[in-house]
């Protein structure tokens, strides 16, 4: 039982570290604000979630704390990346080589004031 717990926790630790690493690599390689937010705001957050899961398994006494923290992180992180992206778009940060921009064409039509 003890070893099984440790093996599962080890797998989760490796997975979490790998995802955090992918987030950092993405942050360096991707070209603009919006795509970088995908790397740091999502992939790294799931790295953190796996690390917290591993901690919850390794220290059963405070497992509830870890699970609650996962819940809060998952609840809050999309709000953070959305507000950064929205602020960047309003400040006029350009997209790197967009294939398609539905929001821009809508703003040019000017049909809706509150966007």
């Amino acid at each position: 039982m003890e070893t099984l717990q440790q093996v599962i926790a080890m797998i989760l630790l490796v997975l979490g570290t790998f995802l955090s690493l992918v987030g950092v690599i993405g942050f360096i390689r991707l070209p603009d604000v919006y795509t970088r937010l995908h790397a740091t705001g999502k992939v790294s957050v799931f790295g953190l979630v796996f690390l917290l899961l591993a901690v919850s398994i390794l220290t059963p006494l405070t497992a509830w704390k870890g699970i609650l923290l996962i819940f809060f992180v998952l609840l809050a992180s999309p709000a953070v990346s959305h507000s950064i992206a929205s602020a960047a778009y309003k400040a006029g940060v350009p997209l790197a080589g967009p294939k398609r921009d539905d929001l821009k064409s809508k703003l040019e039509r000017g049909s809706d004031k509150d966007v």
Binding site: Y34, L37, H38, G41, K42, V43, F46, L74, S77, P78, A79, S81, H82, A85, S86, Y89, L103, V115
Partner: peptide
């Protein structure tokens, strides 16, 4: 916004 690869801007 939670799923990687998609991000609601506005």
């Amino acid at each position: 916004t939670l799923s990687p690869g998609e991000l609601v801007i506005e």
